[in-house]
Design a protein around this nucleic acid. Structure first.
Lengths: 245, 245
DNA sequence: GGGGAGAGATGCCGC
DNA sequence: GCGGCATTTCTCCCC
């Protein structure tokens, strides 16, 4: 197929708001929040219904270049190359993709109104602690949900068996230094707003790095090893038996 | 095309290590670091040379589901549906995609050894400050690069016009509370390791949030408004003139 | 829209 | 591999 024919195909698909996928040899320049240049190579390019653009190399998880929703697209042919320009006025970003060869092209009207359900998040973890506070330590009692929101983004606020106000910060994976400084900030915030000098801090995570544990101890805080729950596990097990998974 | 034919196509493409792209109506279950379920809808699915899998909905920037490199794939047909299972032993993750209809399918051997060049990063910002330290303030002198690495990840370490040791933390966008706590951590680290009580902290960023500025002042630190440099801008402008961009 | 924090974050570099 | 941290982070939620 000729360059001009691909130009028509792309323009039609863009006009019809289809999801476009094509593979090509191209080079890419981007300018906006940063600047980037990517020399000639084979990539997969996707333009979605909402004008999001993604450029993927043949390996790796993340797109090598992209444009956000709200972008506009223009095309032109030059020296047997197809030049795709994208502009996002709001983000003040531009991209130019110079295409020397198309490997394949497809566009399709796609329908998907589904929202993903995920379990095992940090929120699930803090809900689990609210429901089973003894996981933190014996005699730990969470305070009301309203108290929680009142002081911002504290995962769990409660009192220990001695009645000392206690801030619990959850991490779904290994807690690092930043988790300790975050906890420290909350504890200090509570001390100031409540006008009290004794507030405890507990970090709840499956693991903790050595340095983080050291800093935690320096500040008199505690670590409790807790894993995030996976409520869908049961569903999966049931399905597994039905499907022979 | 029949379900069994797609099964053969996919198996062949996987065996040849091609980059596979297809669109289909499907539902997806995932289990690993978390659990997720996504009900029937149209999606774009990509399996890369390195066995990375990405599932994209017709809108949005990020993949709704994915498997990392090192995943294996098996296929089977059932009730006129194609079931793609993926497993990643190292990550202890599994995914099952049930496909009820294929919209299109393509696979291709792609070649791309290019590495992207990006400018305007935080590293560029700290390099700029090293080269033009007066941007921070009059009389500011950075210390040697070796001193910098000695204390880990401090962006710029220097002395002010009064000879006071000064830690500079750079942020390429708006500095938030976490940037202040990060700076504070570095200042405290330097005070302990050097055995001195007076160390200054400067946050260099284009903007700062109100709360962050307040906390910064509470700790006696300073804010300097600096934007990250974009070295490729000149290149872009030159190209623009040549290309009529 | 600003601000704050999680994410199945990812990716990079250093030890 | 662990650890610390930037990212054109993205995304969500709340004010």
């Amino acid at each position: 197929m000729k360059t001009e024919e691909y130009q028509i195909l792309l323009n039609d698909a863009l006009a019809r708001n289809e999801t476009i996928v094509f593979s090509c040899k191209c080079r890419i320049r981007y300018s906006g929040r940063a600047e980037s240049f990517l020399d000639w190579g084979d990539r997969i390019i996707m333009i979605k219904n909402d004008s999001t653009l993604l450029v993927h190399q043949p390996t790796g998880n993340t797109p090598i270049n992209y444009m956000k929703t709200g972008s506009s697209y223009t095309l032109r042919c030059e020296h047997d190359q197809l030049i795709l320009k994208s502009q996002n006025i709001i983000q003040k970003e531009t991209m130019e993709i110079t295409i020397s060869k198309m490997h394949f092209f497809n566009s399709h009207k796609l329908e998907d109104g589904q929202v993903i359900r995920v379990s095992g998040t940090e929120e699930d973890m803090s809900n689990m602690i609210y429901n089973s506070p003894e996981m933190i330590e014996e005699g730990f009692k969470p305070v009301s949900q309203e108290e929680q929101t009142k002081y911002g983004f504290i995962d769990v606020l409660g009192v220990d068996k001695n009645g000392i106000l206690t801030v619990v910060e959850c991490k779904r994976y290994r807690a690092e230094l930043s988790a300790v400084t975050q906890l420290r900030r909350y504890v200090e915030k509570i001390m100031v707003s409540k006008g009290i000098t004794k507030v405890r801090g507990i970090l709840a995570a499956p693991k903790i790095t050595n340095n983080a544990e050291k800093m935690l101890k320096d500040w008199g805080f505690n670590f409790v090893s807790i894993k995030p729950p996976k409520y869908l596990e049961e569903y999966d097990k049931k399905q597994a038996r039905l499907d022979g998974f």
